[in-house]
């Protein structure tokens, strides 16, 4: 029961309180780039969730089974980025084979997941927080993906109605998106301190 409790708190904490987008500024590029339409945003979120869960788990395994305590620790970043690039390639091939229509609609964004900071960032944070339990690492990575999906979907919803708003000429596009993101962050700060 205790483990379940820890896992649940960890999950809620990474989805809402320590949301990667709002508090750690990770994954801002797709957050600003893909959040124009809500269906695209949701697809992107799902792809990121899958890749982040896979690579979070794999990097934890590699880190703990191979690298920790050996001189090879200096190659950690190289290994992490290799795992992520491999996972993205895997998703890309899988989608192209089994869901061609989804693959078409992702276009350029799929390979760009490799350079999504949220994924490498999460792997590094798992390492930094000293998570020493495989299940916890899996739950945290999955939660991070869900948190990202939630953030990008909220943003897409706001931007769809923002299209109808009367925005000053020089703030159109990225500036107003950033300001909206700032206000969203402010709202999410209300959750801070709920756990830990």
């Amino acid at each position: 029961m205790d483990t379940l409790n820890i896992l649940l708190t960890g999950f809620i904490s990474i989805v809402i309180i320590n949301n990667l987008v709002f508090t750690k500024f990770l994954g801002i590029c797709p957050y600003l780039g893909v959040s124009g339409r809500i269906d695209m945003a949701f697809g992107m979120g799902m792809a990121v969730t899958f890749v982040v869960t896979l690579s979070g788990t794999l990097t934890w395994l590699i880190d703990h089974l191979i690298l920790l305590g050996t001189p090879l620790e200096v190659t950690r970043y190289v290994c992490f980025i290799l795992v992520i690039a491999g996972a993205v390639q895997l998703v890309e091939m899988y989608l192209r084979k089994f869901f061609p229509s989804l693959y078409e609609s992702f276009g350029i964004f799929l390979p760009l997941i490799t350079t999504n900071c949220a994924i490498l960032g999460l792997c590094l944070f798992i390492n930094l927080w000293g998570i020493d339990n495989l299940i916890e690492a899996v739950v945290l990575s999955f939660g991070a993906g869900i948190g990202f999906t939630m953030a990008i979907c909220i943003m897409a919803g706001i931007r769809e109605s923002l299209n109808l708003a009367d925005v000053p000429e020089c703030l159109k596009g990225a500036p107003i998106t950033l300001i909206t993101a700032g206000l969203l962050t402010l709202a999410f700060m209300g959750f801070a301190g709920m756990i830990r």
Binding site: A174, P175, I176, G182, T185
Partner: peptide, 18 residues
Amino acid sequence: MPVGAFLTLGLLLGLVNA
């Protein structure tokens, strides 16, 4: 806090556009 970062960058971008 994160809010300050988003707002400052947003306003600066607006300024640059102007």
